[in-house]
Design a protein around this nucleic acid. Structure first.
Lengths: 259, 259
DNA sequence: GCACAATTGTTCGAAATACGAACATTTGTG
DNA sequence: CACAAATGTTCGTATTTCGAACAATTGTGC
Protein backbone atom coordinates (compact mmCIF):
# COMPACT_ATOMS: atom_id res chain seq x y z
CA UNK A 1 0.00 0.00 0.00
CA UNK A 2 1.32 3.26 -1.20
CA UNK A 3 0.86 5.96 1.42
CA UNK A 4 0.65 9.61 0.46
CA UNK A 5 3.55 11.73 1.64
CA UNK A 6 1.38 14.83 1.49
CA UNK A 7 -1.92 15.78 2.91
CA UNK A 8 -4.19 18.82 2.48
CA UNK A 9 -2.75 21.80 4.28
CA UNK A 10 0.87 20.66 3.84
CA UNK A 11 3.01 23.29 2.31
CA UNK A 12 3.72 21.28 -0.82
CA UNK A 13 0.10 20.20 -1.34
CA UNK A 14 -1.33 22.22 -4.23
CA UNK A 15 -4.76 23.19 -3.00
CA UNK A 16 -5.84 24.74 -6.27
CA UNK A 17 -5.27 21.46 -8.12
CA UNK A 18 -7.27 19.58 -5.51
CA UNK A 19 -10.12 22.07 -5.79
CA UNK A 20 -10.13 21.87 -9.57
CA UNK A 21 -10.27 18.08 -9.54
CA UNK A 22 -13.02 18.25 -6.96
CA UNK A 23 -15.02 20.41 -9.35
CA UNK A 24 -14.40 17.94 -12.17
CA UNK A 25 -15.63 15.08 -10.01
CA UNK A 26 -18.92 16.73 -9.21
CA UNK A 27 -20.09 16.11 -12.78
CA UNK A 28 -21.57 12.65 -13.11
CA UNK A 29 -24.69 10.59 -13.69
CA UNK A 30 -26.71 12.40 -11.07
CA UNK A 31 -25.58 15.83 -12.20
CA UNK A 32 -24.48 15.64 -15.83
CA UNK A 33 -25.12 19.33 -16.51
CA UNK A 34 -24.83 22.18 -14.07
CA UNK A 35 -24.76 25.98 -13.93
CA UNK A 36 -21.97 27.79 -12.15
CA UNK A 37 -24.17 28.31 -9.09
CA UNK A 38 -25.01 24.63 -8.95
CA UNK A 39 -21.35 23.68 -9.09
CA UNK A 40 -20.63 26.14 -6.31
CA UNK A 41 -23.43 24.68 -4.19
CA UNK A 42 -22.42 21.05 -4.79
CA UNK A 43 -18.78 21.70 -3.98
CA UNK A 44 -19.61 24.10 -1.17
CA UNK A 45 -17.23 26.63 -2.69
CA UNK A 46 -17.57 30.35 -2.88
CA UNK A 47 -19.24 31.24 -6.15
CA UNK A 48 -16.31 33.24 -7.50
CA UNK A 49 -13.98 30.34 -6.74
CA UNK A 50 -16.19 27.75 -8.39
CA UNK A 51 -16.52 30.04 -11.36
CA UNK A 52 -12.77 30.27 -11.77
CA UNK A 53 -12.36 26.53 -11.72
CA UNK A 54 -15.24 25.76 -14.05
CA UNK A 55 -14.10 28.39 -16.52
CA UNK A 56 -10.54 27.14 -16.35
CA UNK A 57 -11.66 23.55 -16.96
CA UNK A 58 -13.68 24.89 -19.84
CA UNK A 59 -10.72 26.78 -21.27
CA UNK A 60 -8.67 23.58 -21.04
CA UNK A 61 -11.36 21.61 -22.83
CA UNK A 62 -12.44 19.31 -20.01
CA UNK A 63 -15.95 20.73 -19.85
CA UNK A 64 -18.23 22.13 -22.52
CA UNK A 65 -20.63 24.99 -22.20
CA UNK A 66 -24.24 24.85 -23.39
CA UNK A 67 -25.88 28.18 -22.64
CA UNK A 68 -25.53 28.65 -18.89
CA UNK A 69 -24.79 25.00 -18.24
CA UNK A 70 -21.56 23.08 -18.20
CA UNK A 71 -21.06 19.38 -18.84
CA UNK A 72 -18.08 17.04 -19.23
CA UNK A 73 -16.41 16.98 -22.62
CA UNK A 74 -14.95 13.89 -24.31
CA UNK A 75 -11.54 15.15 -23.40
CA UNK A 76 -12.06 13.64 -19.94
CA UNK A 77 -11.67 10.23 -21.55
CA UNK A 78 -8.00 11.06 -22.08
CA UNK A 79 -6.45 10.05 -18.73
CA UNK A 80 -8.50 6.85 -18.66
CA UNK A 81 -7.38 6.06 -22.19
CA UNK A 82 -3.78 6.67 -21.16
CA UNK A 83 -4.23 4.39 -18.15
CA UNK A 84 -5.68 1.58 -20.25
CA UNK A 85 -3.24 1.96 -23.10
CA UNK A 86 -0.29 1.80 -20.70
CA UNK A 87 -1.08 -1.79 -19.87
CA UNK A 88 -0.33 -4.12 -22.72
CA UNK A 89 -2.26 -7.06 -21.25
CA UNK A 90 -5.61 -5.36 -21.42
CA UNK A 91 -6.43 -6.06 -25.06
CA UNK A 92 -5.63 -9.75 -24.90
CA UNK A 93 -7.50 -10.21 -21.63
CA UNK A 94 -10.50 -8.49 -23.20
CA UNK A 95 -10.50 -11.07 -25.97
CA UNK A 96 -10.31 -13.95 -23.52
CA UNK A 97 -13.20 -12.48 -21.56
CA UNK A 98 -15.26 -12.18 -24.69
CA UNK A 99 -14.59 -15.85 -25.43
CA UNK A 100 -15.86 -16.71 -21.96
CA UNK A 101 -18.98 -14.66 -22.55
CA UNK A 102 -19.56 -16.23 -25.95
CA UNK A 103 -19.14 -19.70 -24.50
CA UNK A 104 -20.94 -19.48 -21.18
CA UNK A 105 -23.31 -16.61 -21.83
CA UNK A 106 -22.19 -14.79 -18.68
CA UNK A 107 -20.59 -11.41 -18.00
CA UNK A 108 -16.92 -11.48 -17.25
CA UNK A 109 -14.58 -8.74 -16.02
CA UNK A 110 -11.10 -7.74 -14.91
CA UNK A 111 -10.80 -5.38 -11.97
CA UNK A 112 -8.01 -3.83 -9.93
CA UNK A 113 -7.88 -2.57 -6.38
CA UNK A 114 -7.91 1.16 -5.72
CA UNK A 115 -8.13 2.15 -2.11
CA UNK A 116 -10.97 0.16 -0.60
CA UNK A 117 -12.75 -0.30 -3.92
CA UNK A 118 -12.38 -2.52 -6.92
CA UNK A 119 -12.41 -0.67 -10.22
CA UNK A 120 -13.61 -2.46 -13.35
CA UNK A 121 -11.01 -2.09 -16.09
CA UNK A 122 -12.13 -4.64 -18.68
CA UNK A 123 -15.70 -5.74 -19.28
CA UNK A 124 -17.32 -8.35 -21.43
CA UNK A 125 -21.04 -8.03 -20.81
CA UNK A 126 -23.47 -10.87 -21.40
CA UNK A 127 -26.01 -9.65 -23.89
CA UNK A 128 -28.52 -12.43 -23.70
CA UNK A 129 -29.51 -11.92 -20.07
CA UNK A 130 -32.53 -9.89 -19.11
CA UNK A 131 -31.40 -9.80 -15.52
CA UNK A 132 -28.27 -7.92 -16.43
CA UNK A 133 -25.30 -6.61 -14.52
CA UNK A 134 -25.14 -2.90 -15.30
CA UNK A 135 -21.51 -2.05 -14.89
CA UNK A 136 -18.92 -0.25 -17.00
CA UNK A 137 -15.21 0.29 -17.19
CA UNK A 138 -14.50 2.72 -14.39
CA UNK A 139 -17.22 1.42 -12.08
CA UNK A 140 -16.13 1.24 -8.45
CA UNK A 141 -17.52 -1.24 -5.95
CA UNK A 142 -16.58 -1.97 -2.34
CA UNK A 143 -13.74 -4.50 -2.43
CA UNK A 144 -14.77 -6.40 0.65
CA UNK A 145 -18.13 -7.40 -0.77
CA UNK A 146 -17.12 -8.51 -4.25
CA UNK A 147 -15.42 -11.70 -5.39
CA UNK A 148 -12.74 -9.81 -7.26
CA UNK A 149 -12.17 -7.53 -4.28
CA UNK A 150 -11.77 -10.51 -1.95
CA UNK A 151 -9.25 -12.07 -4.30
CA UNK A 152 -7.25 -8.84 -4.57
CA UNK A 153 -7.36 -8.24 -0.83
CA UNK A 154 -6.05 -11.78 -0.42
CA UNK A 155 -2.95 -10.77 -2.39
CA UNK A 156 -2.08 -7.95 -0.02
CA UNK A 157 0.69 -8.11 2.56
CA UNK A 158 -0.47 -8.55 6.14
CA UNK A 159 0.09 -4.93 7.02
CA UNK A 160 -1.80 -3.73 3.95
CA UNK A 161 -4.68 -6.06 4.69
CA UNK A 162 -4.80 -4.80 8.26
CA UNK A 163 -4.84 -1.24 6.95
CA UNK A 164 -7.81 -2.14 4.77
CA UNK A 165 -9.64 -3.81 7.65
CA UNK A 166 -9.06 -0.80 9.82
CA UNK A 167 -10.67 1.59 7.37
CA UNK A 168 -13.30 -0.61 5.73
CA UNK A 169 -16.90 0.42 6.15
CA UNK A 170 -19.12 -2.57 6.82
CA UNK A 171 -22.55 -2.32 5.32
CA UNK A 172 -25.54 -4.63 5.14
CA UNK A 173 -26.12 -4.52 1.39
CA UNK A 174 -28.13 -7.73 1.75
CA UNK A 175 -29.03 -10.06 4.63
CA UNK A 176 -25.99 -12.14 3.65
CA UNK A 177 -23.42 -9.36 3.86
CA UNK A 178 -20.51 -9.89 6.24
CA UNK A 179 -20.91 -7.57 9.21
CA UNK A 180 -17.81 -8.02 11.32
CA UNK A 181 -14.20 -7.29 10.54
CA UNK A 182 -13.18 -10.61 12.01
CA UNK A 183 -15.43 -12.60 9.66
CA UNK A 184 -14.27 -10.51 6.71
CA UNK A 185 -10.63 -11.12 7.53
CA UNK A 186 -11.28 -14.79 7.96
CA UNK A 187 -13.02 -14.94 4.57
CA UNK A 188 -10.21 -13.07 2.84
CA UNK A 189 -7.60 -15.41 4.33
CA UNK A 190 -9.68 -18.36 3.19
CA UNK A 191 -9.84 -16.91 -0.31
CA UNK A 192 -6.10 -16.40 -0.22
CA UNK A 193 -5.42 -20.01 0.64
CA UNK A 194 -7.95 -21.57 -1.73
CA UNK A 195 -6.94 -19.33 -4.63
CA UNK A 196 -10.40 -18.16 -5.65
CA UNK A 197 -13.40 -16.35 -4.21
CA UNK A 198 -17.08 -17.00 -4.47
CA UNK A 199 -19.39 -14.26 -3.28
CA UNK A 200 -23.02 -15.09 -3.04
CA UNK A 201 -25.62 -12.40 -2.72
CA UNK A 202 -23.53 -10.27 -0.37
CA UNK A 203 -23.53 -7.11 -2.46
CA UNK A 204 -26.82 -7.43 -4.25
CA UNK A 205 -29.67 -9.92 -4.23
CA UNK A 206 -29.23 -12.54 -6.92
CA UNK A 207 -25.62 -11.65 -7.66
CA UNK A 208 -23.35 -14.65 -7.50
CA UNK A 209 -19.80 -14.52 -8.76
CA UNK A 210 -16.50 -16.35 -8.82
CA UNK A 211 -13.10 -14.69 -9.16
CA UNK A 212 -9.40 -15.56 -9.39
CA UNK A 213 -6.21 -13.49 -9.33
CA UNK A 214 -4.36 -13.11 -12.60
CA UNK A 215 -0.59 -12.70 -12.92
CA UNK A 216 1.94 -12.13 -15.67
CA UNK A 217 4.57 -14.73 -16.36
CA UNK A 218 6.94 -12.72 -14.20
CA UNK A 219 4.49 -12.70 -11.34
CA UNK A 220 3.15 -9.19 -11.52
CA UNK A 221 -0.47 -9.08 -10.38
CA UNK A 222 -2.66 -7.84 -13.22
CA UNK A 223 -5.92 -7.86 -11.28
CA UNK A 224 -8.77 -10.22 -10.65
CA UNK A 225 -10.87 -12.00 -13.22
CA UNK A 226 -14.46 -12.93 -12.57
CA UNK A 227 -17.64 -14.35 -13.99
CA UNK A 228 -20.84 -12.86 -12.63
CA UNK A 229 -24.03 -14.84 -12.66
CA UNK A 230 -27.55 -14.90 -11.38
CA UNK A 231 -28.00 -17.05 -8.30
CA UNK A 232 -31.45 -18.08 -9.48
CA UNK A 233 -30.01 -19.64 -12.60
CA UNK A 234 -26.52 -20.94 -11.86
CA UNK A 235 -25.99 -23.25 -8.98
CA UNK A 236 -22.88 -23.52 -6.91
CA UNK A 237 -21.85 -26.73 -8.46
CA UNK A 238 -21.71 -25.25 -11.97
CA UNK A 239 -19.81 -22.27 -10.65
CA UNK A 240 -17.17 -24.51 -9.14
CA UNK A 241 -16.93 -27.18 -11.81
CA UNK A 242 -17.37 -25.16 -15.03
CA UNK A 243 -16.89 -21.44 -14.46
CA UNK A 244 -13.93 -21.51 -12.09
CA UNK A 245 -11.86 -23.85 -14.27
CA UNK A 246 -12.64 -21.64 -17.25
CA UNK A 247 -11.21 -18.63 -15.45
CA UNK A 248 -8.16 -20.62 -14.39
CA UNK A 249 -7.62 -21.52 -18.01
CA UNK A 250 -7.38 -17.83 -18.96
CA UNK A 251 -5.01 -17.25 -16.06
CA UNK A 252 -2.79 -20.01 -17.38
CA UNK A 253 -2.79 -18.60 -20.90
CA UNK A 254 -1.93 -15.09 -19.76
CA UNK A 255 0.94 -16.41 -17.69
CA UNK A 256 2.48 -17.77 -20.88
CA UNK A 257 2.47 -14.48 -22.71
CA UNK A 258 5.99 -13.30 -23.46
CA UNK A 259 6.81 -9.86 -22.25
CA UNK B 1 -18.68 26.01 -31.21
CA UNK B 2 -18.10 26.88 -27.64
CA UNK B 3 -15.34 29.44 -27.24
CA UNK B 4 -13.42 29.76 -23.97
CA UNK B 5 -14.03 32.95 -22.07
CA UNK B 6 -10.67 32.60 -20.33
CA UNK B 7 -7.15 32.11 -21.50
CA UNK B 8 -3.86 31.43 -19.72
CA UNK B 9 -2.68 34.56 -17.97
CA UNK B 10 -6.17 35.91 -17.40
CA UNK B 11 -6.79 36.84 -13.86
CA UNK B 12 -9.51 34.24 -13.39
CA UNK B 13 -7.57 31.44 -15.10
CA UNK B 14 -6.29 29.06 -12.40
CA UNK B 15 -2.74 28.36 -13.47
CA UNK B 16 -2.12 25.75 -10.81
CA UNK B 17 -5.02 23.65 -12.07
CA UNK B 18 -3.76 23.89 -15.63
CA UNK B 19 -0.27 22.85 -14.51
CA UNK B 20 -1.62 19.91 -12.54
CA UNK B 21 -3.66 18.65 -15.48
CA UNK B 22 -0.66 19.08 -17.71
CA UNK B 23 1.30 16.81 -15.39
CA UNK B 24 -1.49 14.25 -15.46
CA UNK B 25 -1.49 14.29 -19.26
CA UNK B 26 2.20 13.54 -19.53
CA UNK B 27 1.54 9.97 -18.37
CA UNK B 28 0.60 7.76 -21.29
CA UNK B 29 1.60 4.89 -23.56
CA UNK B 30 5.01 6.31 -24.33
CA UNK B 31 5.74 7.17 -20.72
CA UNK B 32 3.60 5.01 -18.46
CA UNK B 33 5.96 5.27 -15.49
CA UNK B 34 8.17 8.19 -14.60
CA UNK B 35 10.31 9.55 -11.78
CA UNK B 36 9.82 13.07 -10.51
CA UNK B 37 12.79 14.27 -12.56
CA UNK B 38 11.37 12.74 -15.69
CA UNK B 39 8.02 14.43 -15.15
CA UNK B 40 9.80 17.72 -14.61
CA UNK B 41 11.78 17.28 -17.83
CA UNK B 42 8.75 16.26 -19.92
CA UNK B 43 6.65 19.15 -18.68
CA UNK B 44 9.56 21.54 -18.73
CA UNK B 45 8.70 22.58 -15.16
CA UNK B 46 11.02 23.41 -12.34
CA UNK B 47 11.70 20.25 -10.38
CA UNK B 48 10.19 21.52 -7.14
CA UNK B 49 7.04 22.52 -8.99
CA UNK B 50 6.67 19.19 -10.74
CA UNK B 51 7.26 17.46 -7.42
CA UNK B 52 4.42 19.39 -5.82
CA UNK B 53 2.00 18.46 -8.53
CA UNK B 54 2.97 14.82 -8.74
CA UNK B 55 2.81 14.42 -4.99
CA UNK B 56 -0.54 16.21 -4.85
CA UNK B 57 -1.94 13.97 -7.60
CA UNK B 58 -0.59 11.06 -5.62
CA UNK B 59 -2.22 12.26 -2.42
CA UNK B 60 -5.51 12.61 -4.29
CA UNK B 61 -5.21 9.09 -5.68
CA UNK B 62 -4.76 9.87 -9.36
CA UNK B 63 -1.24 8.45 -9.53
CA UNK B 64 0.39 5.56 -7.71
CA UNK B 65 3.92 5.34 -6.50
CA UNK B 66 6.15 2.33 -7.13
CA UNK B 67 9.52 3.00 -5.57
CA UNK B 68 10.74 6.16 -7.21
CA UNK B 69 8.34 5.95 -10.09
CA UNK B 70 4.84 7.21 -10.52
CA UNK B 71 2.13 5.87 -12.80
CA UNK B 72 -1.54 6.52 -13.37
CA UNK B 73 -3.96 4.90 -10.98
CA UNK B 74 -7.38 3.48 -11.89
CA UNK B 75 -8.93 6.51 -10.32
CA UNK B 76 -8.26 8.36 -13.60
CA UNK B 77 -11.02 6.27 -15.14
CA UNK B 78 -13.49 8.22 -13.02
CA UNK B 79 -14.15 11.31 -15.15
CA UNK B 80 -14.40 9.19 -18.30
CA UNK B 81 -16.84 6.91 -16.53
CA UNK B 82 -18.88 9.91 -15.47
CA UNK B 83 -18.85 11.21 -19.04
CA UNK B 84 -20.03 7.90 -20.47
CA UNK B 85 -22.60 7.26 -17.76
CA UNK B 86 -24.12 10.69 -18.28
CA UNK B 87 -25.30 9.71 -21.73
CA UNK B 88 -28.11 7.21 -21.63
CA UNK B 89 -27.86 6.31 -25.32
CA UNK B 90 -24.40 4.82 -25.05
CA UNK B 91 -25.36 1.39 -23.79
CA UNK B 92 -28.00 0.76 -26.39
CA UNK B 93 -25.81 2.03 -29.20
CA UNK B 94 -23.09 -0.32 -28.00
CA UNK B 95 -25.44 -3.23 -28.40
CA UNK B 96 -26.41 -2.21 -31.91
CA UNK B 97 -22.76 -1.89 -32.84
CA UNK B 98 -22.06 -5.35 -31.51
CA UNK B 99 -24.87 -6.71 -33.64
CA UNK B 100 -23.29 -5.09 -36.69
CA UNK B 101 -19.95 -6.64 -35.82
CA UNK B 102 -21.49 -10.04 -35.25
CA UNK B 103 -23.32 -9.84 -38.58
CA UNK B 104 -20.77 -8.26 -40.87
CA UNK B 105 -17.55 -9.16 -39.10
CA UNK B 106 -16.35 -5.55 -39.13
CA UNK B 107 -15.42 -3.04 -36.44
CA UNK B 108 -18.01 -0.42 -35.72
CA UNK B 109 -17.83 2.71 -33.58
CA UNK B 110 -19.51 5.85 -32.30
CA UNK B 111 -17.46 9.04 -32.10
CA UNK B 112 -18.02 12.65 -31.17
CA UNK B 113 -16.24 15.82 -32.18
CA UNK B 114 -13.88 17.50 -29.73
CA UNK B 115 -11.98 20.45 -31.11
CA UNK B 116 -10.47 19.33 -34.39
CA UNK B 117 -10.47 15.65 -33.43
CA UNK B 118 -13.00 12.88 -33.31
CA UNK B 119 -12.98 10.95 -30.04
CA UNK B 120 -14.10 7.33 -30.03
CA UNK B 121 -16.74 6.84 -27.33
CA UNK B 122 -18.19 3.43 -28.18
CA UNK B 123 -16.31 0.59 -29.84
CA UNK B 124 -17.27 -2.80 -31.12
CA UNK B 125 -14.06 -4.34 -32.44
CA UNK B 126 -14.03 -7.09 -35.06
CA UNK B 127 -12.24 -10.03 -33.53
CA UNK B 128 -11.80 -12.20 -36.59
CA UNK B 129 -9.61 -9.83 -38.56
CA UNK B 130 -5.88 -10.16 -38.55
CA UNK B 131 -5.55 -6.76 -40.17
CA UNK B 132 -7.14 -5.07 -37.18
CA UNK B 133 -8.01 -1.52 -36.33
CA UNK B 134 -6.28 -0.83 -33.02
CA UNK B 135 -8.42 1.82 -31.44
CA UNK B 136 -10.03 2.26 -28.05
CA UNK B 137 -12.58 4.37 -26.29
CA UNK B 138 -10.82 7.69 -25.82
CA UNK B 139 -8.75 7.48 -29.00
CA UNK B 140 -8.51 10.79 -30.82
CA UNK B 141 -8.05 11.10 -34.58
CA UNK B 142 -8.02 14.14 -36.87
CA UNK B 143 -11.63 14.85 -37.78
CA UNK B 144 -10.96 16.01 -41.33
CA UNK B 145 -9.44 12.68 -42.36
CA UNK B 146 -11.96 10.27 -40.89
CA UNK B 147 -15.43 9.34 -42.10
CA UNK B 148 -16.99 10.06 -38.74
CA UNK B 149 -15.16 13.38 -38.52
CA UNK B 150 -16.40 14.41 -41.97
CA UNK B 151 -19.96 13.55 -40.98
CA UNK B 152 -19.72 15.53 -37.76
CA UNK B 153 -18.08 18.48 -39.46
CA UNK B 154 -20.96 18.39 -41.93
CA UNK B 155 -23.35 18.98 -39.03
CA UNK B 156 -21.62 22.20 -37.98
CA UNK B 157 -22.95 25.67 -38.65
CA UNK B 158 -21.19 27.61 -41.39
CA UNK B 159 -19.28 29.73 -38.94
CA UNK B 160 -18.16 26.73 -36.94
CA UNK B 161 -17.07 24.89 -40.06
CA UNK B 162 -15.12 27.93 -41.17
CA UNK B 163 -13.47 28.08 -37.75
CA UNK B 164 -12.44 24.45 -38.18
CA UNK B 165 -11.08 25.05 -41.65
CA UNK B 166 -9.10 28.00 -40.41
CA UNK B 167 -7.33 25.98 -37.75
CA UNK B 168 -7.12 22.54 -39.34
CA UNK B 169 -3.67 21.15 -39.97
CA UNK B 170 -3.48 19.45 -43.34
CA UNK B 171 -1.23 16.44 -43.41
CA UNK B 172 -0.31 13.86 -46.03
CA UNK B 173 -1.07 10.73 -44.01
CA UNK B 174 -1.24 8.84 -47.30
CA UNK B 175 -0.96 9.76 -50.99
CA UNK B 176 -4.76 10.04 -50.99
CA UNK B 177 -5.05 12.58 -48.18
CA UNK B 178 -6.78 15.85 -49.00
CA UNK B 179 -4.21 18.62 -49.06
CA UNK B 180 -6.13 21.82 -49.57
CA UNK B 181 -8.71 23.51 -47.41
CA UNK B 182 -10.90 24.14 -50.44
CA UNK B 183 -11.07 20.43 -51.33
CA UNK B 184 -11.71 19.54 -47.71
CA UNK B 185 -14.55 22.02 -47.45
CA UNK B 186 -16.01 20.78 -50.69
CA UNK B 187 -15.87 17.20 -49.45
CA UNK B 188 -17.50 18.08 -46.13
CA UNK B 189 -20.31 19.92 -47.88
CA UNK B 190 -20.79 16.92 -50.16
CA UNK B 191 -20.98 14.67 -47.10
CA UNK B 192 -23.50 17.01 -45.56
CA UNK B 193 -25.79 16.89 -48.56
CA UNK B 194 -25.52 13.16 -49.23
CA UNK B 195 -25.97 12.27 -45.55
CA UNK B 196 -22.98 9.92 -45.22
CA UNK B 197 -19.21 9.89 -45.63
CA UNK B 198 -16.87 7.41 -47.19
CA UNK B 199 -13.19 7.88 -46.53
CA UNK B 200 -10.84 5.73 -48.49
CA UNK B 201 -7.22 5.38 -47.44
CA UNK B 202 -6.85 9.01 -46.50
CA UNK B 203 -5.73 8.45 -42.93
CA UNK B 204 -4.01 5.11 -43.26
CA UNK B 205 -3.25 2.71 -46.06
CA UNK B 206 -5.96 0.10 -46.38
CA UNK B 207 -8.41 1.85 -44.11
CA UNK B 208 -11.79 2.30 -45.73
CA UNK B 209 -14.82 3.40 -43.77
CA UNK B 210 -18.37 4.64 -44.04
CA UNK B 211 -20.11 6.85 -41.49
CA UNK B 212 -23.46 8.48 -40.81
CA UNK B 213 -24.69 11.01 -38.24
CA UNK B 214 -26.93 9.69 -35.49
CA UNK B 215 -29.64 11.74 -33.77
CA UNK B 216 -32.12 11.26 -30.96
CA UNK B 217 -35.85 11.38 -31.65
CA UNK B 218 -35.78 15.02 -30.59
CA UNK B 219 -32.98 15.80 -33.00
CA UNK B 220 -30.03 16.03 -30.68
CA UNK B 221 -26.85 14.89 -32.42
CA UNK B 222 -25.41 11.89 -30.60
CA UNK B 223 -22.33 11.51 -32.78
CA UNK B 224 -21.31 9.62 -35.84
CA UNK B 225 -21.57 5.89 -36.44
CA UNK B 226 -19.14 4.05 -38.65
CA UNK B 227 -18.02 0.72 -39.97
CA UNK B 228 -14.30 0.42 -40.65
CA UNK B 229 -13.04 -2.05 -43.19
CA UNK B 230 -10.00 -3.11 -45.11
CA UNK B 231 -9.89 -1.72 -48.62
CA UNK B 232 -8.24 -4.92 -49.86
CA UNK B 233 -11.23 -6.96 -48.80
CA UNK B 234 -14.35 -4.84 -49.08
CA UNK B 235 -15.14 -3.09 -52.30
CA UNK B 236 -17.00 0.16 -52.65
CA UNK B 237 -20.11 -1.46 -53.87
CA UNK B 238 -20.50 -3.58 -50.71
CA UNK B 239 -19.82 -0.55 -48.59
CA UNK B 240 -22.60 1.38 -50.30
CA UNK B 241 -25.16 -1.36 -50.71
CA UNK B 242 -24.72 -3.41 -47.51
CA UNK B 243 -22.79 -1.51 -44.88
CA UNK B 244 -24.28 1.96 -45.28
CA UNK B 245 -27.90 0.71 -45.13
CA UNK B 246 -27.03 -1.27 -42.04
CA UNK B 247 -25.82 1.89 -40.30
CA UNK B 248 -28.91 3.76 -41.41
CA UNK B 249 -30.99 1.03 -39.86
CA UNK B 250 -29.39 1.64 -36.47
CA UNK B 251 -29.91 5.37 -36.89
CA UNK B 252 -33.59 4.73 -37.51
CA UNK B 253 -33.92 2.52 -34.44
CA UNK B 254 -32.22 5.01 -32.15
CA UNK B 255 -34.46 7.78 -33.42
CA UNK B 256 -37.41 5.78 -32.13
CA UNK B 257 -36.15 5.45 -28.59
CA UNK B 258 -38.37 7.27 -26.13
CA UNK B 259 -36.67 9.75 -23.92
C1' DG C 1 -43.66 43.69 -22.42
C1' DC C 2 -42.45 44.50 -17.61
C1' DA C 3 -40.77 43.74 -12.89
C1' DC C 4 -38.05 41.31 -10.28
C1' DA C 5 -35.42 37.35 -8.74
C1' DA C 6 -31.68 34.66 -9.84
C1' DT C 7 -27.56 34.13 -12.03
C1' DT C 8 -23.43 35.55 -13.94
C1' DG C 9 -19.66 38.86 -14.67
C1' DT C 10 -16.17 42.12 -12.87
C1' DT C 11 -13.07 44.52 -9.83
C1' DC C 12 -9.70 44.87 -6.42
C1' DG C 13 -7.32 44.72 -1.83
C1' DA C 14 -5.04 41.43 0.61
C1' DA C 15 -4.38 36.83 2.51
C1' DA C 16 -2.68 32.74 1.03
C1' DT C 17 -0.36 30.02 -1.96
C1' DA C 18 2.80 28.46 -5.22
C1' DC C 19 7.35 29.31 -6.72
C1' DG C 20 12.28 28.33 -7.23
C1' DA C 21 16.88 28.69 -5.36
C1' DA C 22 19.91 26.66 -2.40
C1' DC C 23 21.17 23.35 0.72
C1' DA C 24 20.67 18.49 2.73
C1' DT C 25 19.85 13.67 2.31
C1' DT C 26 19.14 9.39 0.02
C1' DT C 27 19.56 6.12 -3.59
C1' DG C 28 21.52 3.78 -7.51
C1' DT C 29 25.40 2.44 -10.22
C1' DG C 30 29.91 1.12 -11.72
C1' DC D 1 33.22 2.44 -1.80
C1' DA D 2 32.90 6.89 -4.36
C1' DC D 3 30.27 9.64 -6.71
C1' DA D 4 26.52 11.08 -9.67
C1' DA D 5 21.83 11.44 -9.86
C1' DA D 6 17.68 11.89 -7.74
C1' DT D 7 14.84 13.31 -4.15
C1' DG D 8 13.67 15.92 0.06
C1' DT D 9 13.49 20.26 2.69
C1' DT D 10 13.47 25.07 3.86
C1' DC D 11 12.25 29.67 3.31
C1' DG D 12 11.83 34.43 1.39
C1' DT D 13 8.89 36.44 -1.71
C1' DA D 14 6.48 37.14 -6.06
C1' DT D 15 2.41 35.70 -7.69
C1' DT D 16 -1.79 33.77 -7.40
C1' DT D 17 -6.04 32.82 -5.58
C1' DC D 18 -9.56 34.42 -2.70
C1' DG D 19 -14.03 36.47 -1.60
C1' DA D 20 -16.68 40.59 -0.85
C1' DA D 21 -19.08 43.92 -3.08
C1' DC D 22 -20.90 45.99 -6.95
C1' DA D 23 -22.58 45.74 -11.93
C1' DA D 24 -24.81 43.53 -15.68
C1' DT D 25 -27.49 39.98 -17.82
C1' DT D 26 -30.85 36.46 -18.16
C1' DG D 27 -34.91 33.86 -17.03
C1' DT D 28 -39.53 33.62 -15.32
C1' DG D 29 -44.17 34.66 -14.16
C1' DC D 30 -47.76 37.67 -14.84
Amino acid sequence: MDEPSLKPGDRDFVGALASGLEVLQVFGVEHPRMTLSEVAARTNMDRAKARRFVLTLHALGYVKRVGRQFELSPRVLGPGYAYQASNQYRAVIEQYLEEITAELGESSSLAVLDGNDVVYVVRSPARLRLMAITLSVGTRLPAGYTSMGRVLLGQLREQELDGFLESVELKAFTPYSIMTKESLKKEILKVRSQGFAIVDEELDAGLRSVAVPIYTGSNVLLGALNISTNAARVDMQVLMSVYLPRLQEVVGKVKLIAQ
